[in-house]
C-alpha cells in the first residue's frame, strides 16, 4: 500500500479503461518514484494520454487502482479537488482561460483553490512567469501570445500551485517547430530542479536528455520500459523496434 512516506508518489495497479466498447487501457501497472521523470511514448491510440488523464482523474478508471501520494483516487473520493491541486497538468492545446490576462490565469486557482491573498498570489505568479521566461507578457491576453508563449504560461499556471507532480500531455504537439525548443527548455529546467514529471511526448531528444525512465505503450498496455538508452538503442520487443524505426526513419 502506498503511503505518504513511500518512495513511490504514483502507484497504478491493473488499470483498465473502457470508452463504450473500446478498451483504451487493458491492465496497466506503473510506479513513479518521487523526483523522477517518466516519458511515455507510443503510437496514437495506444492509451498514453488516457493513462496520464487517469492520474488526475480527468478520466475515471473502469477497473484497477490509482494511488497518488498515498491517496486512492475514486469516484467517491471527496478530496479529489485537493488531490488535483497537487498535480499540475499541461495540455496539448494549452487551455488557457481566454477571458483572463496572463497574470489572472495564474492567480485565479491560487486564490480560489489555495486561498492565497491577492498580493501573495500575484507575487508567486510573477515569479513563475520569470521562471518560464515571459515576465513581460503578464498583462497580455492569451490570444495575443504565440503558441510557445501560451504553453509556457500554462506551465507557469500549473507551477504556481506548487504541485508535487507535473503531467504533460503532448505539450509540444500543437506548436510550430521553432517554438518547440522554448517549451522543452522550460521542461528540462523543471526536470533538473527535481520535479516529478510524467510526460507523454514524441520529443525523443527531450526523453534522452531528461527521462529517468521511458515507457513504450501499445494497444493499452506497457510493452517495454527502461532507461532511455535501453529503450531507444537496445529495444527488446518487436513492436518497440517497429515504432522507433517509423519515427526515426525521417
Amino acid at each position: 500500500m502506498a503511503t505518504a512516506a513511500s518512495k513511490n508518489i504514483i502507484e497504478i495497479r491493473n488499470l483498465h479503461k473502457y470508452f463504450g466498447d473500446v478498451q483504451a487501457l487493458r491492465g496497466v501497472n506503473l510506479n513513479v518514484e518521487r523526483g523522477k521523470v517518466v516519458v511515455i511514448v507510443g503510437p496514437s491510440g495506444s492509451g498514453k494520454s488516457t493513462l496520464l488523464r487517469c492520474i488526475n482523474h480527468l478520466e475515471v478508471e473502469t477497473e484497477g487502482e490509482v494511488w497518488v501520494d498515498g491517496k486512492r483516487l475514486s469516484e467517491k473520493n471527496k478530496d479529489i479537488n485537493s488531490i488535483r491541486a497537487e498535480i499540475g497538468m499541461v495540455f496539448q492545446l494549452f487551455n488557457l482561460f481566454p477571458h483572463l490576462s496572463v497574470l489572472d490565469n495564474i492567480v485565479l486557482a491560487q486564490r480560489v483553490v489555495r486561498g492565497r491573498k491577492k498580493d501573495e498570489a500575484v507575487q508567486i505568479a510573477h515569479e513563475q512567469l520569470k521562471r518560464v521566461g515571459i515576465s513581460e507578457k503578464a498583462d497580455n491576453f492569451p490570444g495575443q501570445l504565440s503558441g510557445g508563449q501560451q504553453q509556457r504560461v500554462a506551465i507557469a499556471r500549473a507551477l504556481a500551485m506548487n504541485p508535487k507532480i507535473m503531467l504533460f500531455d503532448e505539450p509540444t504537439s500543437a506548436l510550430d517547430p521553432e517554438m518547440i525548443k522554448e517549451v522543452l527548455d522550460v521542461m528540462l529546467a523543471l526536470a533538473k530542479d527535481g520535479m516529478t514529471m510524467v510526460c507523454v511526448t514524441h520529443e525523443m531528444g527531450f526523453a534522452r536528455a531528461a527521462a529517468d525512465e521511458v515507457i513504450f505503450m501499445d494497444h493499452g498496455l506497457i510493452v517495454e520500459k527502461g532507461s532511455p538508452d535501453a529503450v531507444f538503442n537496445h529495444p527488446q520487443e518487436e513492436r518497440t523496434k517497429l515504432f522507433l524505426s517509423q519515427i526515426l526513419s525521417h
Partner: peptide, 8 residues
C-alpha cells in the same frame, strides 16, 4: 478540464 486539473 484545465480548471478542474487546477483543483477547482
Amino acid at each position: 478540464e484545465a480548471a478542474r486539473s487546477l483543483g477547482m
